[in-house]
Design a protein around this nucleic acid. Structure first.
Length: 121
DNA sequence: GCACTGACGCGGG
DNA sequence: TCCCGCGCCAGTG
């Protein structure tokens, strides 16, 4: 259950104008392999309604988002509003992870761990 | 408890 | 590089 609480904290720390992958979020929540739960939580609002769900893309940078947003292009519009370039490909809308991906550096992981300690999670 | 599902990820061919 | 298949695991009925 605290997985979703952690998710909320992790998602809040994704900087505007950057994107993170489902697996990356799961890893930072201490549950590597739970990428699917991240998608579930976002769709059902289990991690809070205010989390920046539009900054979450899959491992390849595709905007798999769909019915959770008002329209299929809502996520694209939100990202572009933050300065993220969203490209049109044969497989759908995609962002360049090398450019906009949230590098899950050691510093960030340690900082998150510290936040979890503070929150008693 | 069982079976099926899914905003996913990865290694092998 | 692209594709395919298998693994993953909490929710749901």
């Amino acid at each position: 259950m605290d997985f979703y609480k952690r998710m909320e904290l992790v998602c809040e720390r994704i900087p505007a104008g950057r994107t993170a992958s489902y697996g990356q979020i799961a890893l930072l929540c201490g549950k590597p392999g739970n990428a699917r739960q991240v998608g579930y939580a976002l769709r059902r609002g289990r991690a809070g309604e205010h989390v920046p769900a539009h900054r979450i893309v899959n491992a390849k940078g595709f905007l798999s988002g769909a019915e959770a947003f008002e329209t299929p292009e809502t996520q694209k519009r939100l990202l572009e509003a933050e300065g993220v370039l969203v490209k049109r490909t044969d497989a759908g809308w995609q962002v360049d992870l090398r450019e906009y991906g949230w590098a899950s550096s050691m510093e960030e992981a340690e900082e998150l761990y510290r936040v979890f300690q503070e929150k008693g999670i």
